[in-house]
Design a protein around this nucleic acid. Structure first.
Lengths: 181, 181
DNA sequence: TTGACACCATCCCAATGAGACCATAGCTTC
DNA sequence: GAAGCTATGGTCTCATTGGGATGGTGTCAA
């Protein structure tokens, strides 16, 4: 039933949206758009598309001359699989890996001042991401273009997410003893 | 400089806090406490402690009789490494993998109704986590115990995080066209 | 023409994820 | 007290992954 991983569908989706692409182009697009909620190491982008081609969801067209890039096209099967996946509201559980939270969890085993230092650093870090998302959002033209609206929605979530973290770490830095709301 | 991964420090930290442990006990503790911000598959807990023992941060004491469990103790080196790590405010970047966000990003390639279905499902899911964290938090005795306060802080962040997601997905379910705040 | 650099792709190997599998202990039931 | 069940505890395997190292190709400027 699960025809491929979210990473696979991300590849299908990018090609569906922007047309045939090489792994290298995929890399650039993913870094911009998808990284924040589904990181994909670059080497995977030379493994996933051939796999999807095997499965008949993409078609590979290799240049024979010069640089011999491998360009991947969406097939009808690929588009169908992508649409089936989008229509399925059940998804896997989200996963988070945040070294700062691990550290905070064990902070009582260290010096009390360590918490303030950690929280200050984290607050700054998340504020940076927050303003990054906000400026990306500001750049977005307020068109009714449905492609733009996908990005806009995710940016809104990114802002909410970073805002929550900024609030948390800032309040922790300001008053490390406090535990209530 | 980086003596081991956050997973390694989580193992050191749990043993520092609760005393010598077998991999099996580690598994139980991690599922309860650490899973939400740093998942560790169970097989890793039979690989990481021996590795730390190699590095001199743990000491292994194998039962010779019956069940022959492997009990790992913290060494002085281990405690020192743990404290150094806690005192270091720089951490790696957090990573998120959320299939629902990938799906939402490509939702414009499917039917408009798919968004509502996805958002409704996600809102319910995150509301579940939210109330889970809130009830765990309610159970916590309001002691000044520093061990409890570590848990309390992380639960507060969990609540904020889930709240942000609930807000996002609920507003999306209610009005999929809206893009502003 | 010769660097220098950005572009593009592949390789490799250790680490990982996930699940199947195995073994022991203690409890129940007869 | 034997047989069987279930919870406990641990190990193995194998495909997949992460991510750094490497090695080509086109292009532009000096």
């Amino acid at each position: 039933m699960a025809e491929c991983s979210p990473a696979g569908y991300a590849v299908l989706g990018l090609i569906a949206r922007h047309g045939p692409m090489t792994p290298y182009e995929l890399k650039a697009r993913i870094q911009d758009d998808i990284e924040p909620f589904w990181p994909i190491p670059h080497a995977q982008l030379y493994r996933i598309p051939p796999g999807l081609a095997q499965a008949g969801l993409l078609r590979e067209e290799a240049e024979t001359t010069g640089r011999r890039r491998r360009i991947f096209h969406l097939t009808d099967n690929g588009r169908a699989a992508l649409e089936r996946w989008i229509a399925e509201p059940d998804t896997g559980e989200p996963e988070t890996r945040d070294p700062a939270q691990v550290k905070l969890f064990f902070a009582d085993l260290g010096a009390p001042a360590d918490i303030v230092a950690l929280a200050t650093r984290q607050a700054a870090q998340h504020r940076k991401w927050l303003s990054h998302y906000e400026s990306l959002r500001a750049e977005l033209e307020p068109s009714k273009d449905s492609r733009q609206s996908a990005r806009a929605r995710l940016l809104r979530l990114g802002v909410l997410h970073e805002q929550a973290h900024v609030d948390f770490w800032e309040s922790l830095a300001a008053d490390p003893g406090r535990l209530d709301d």
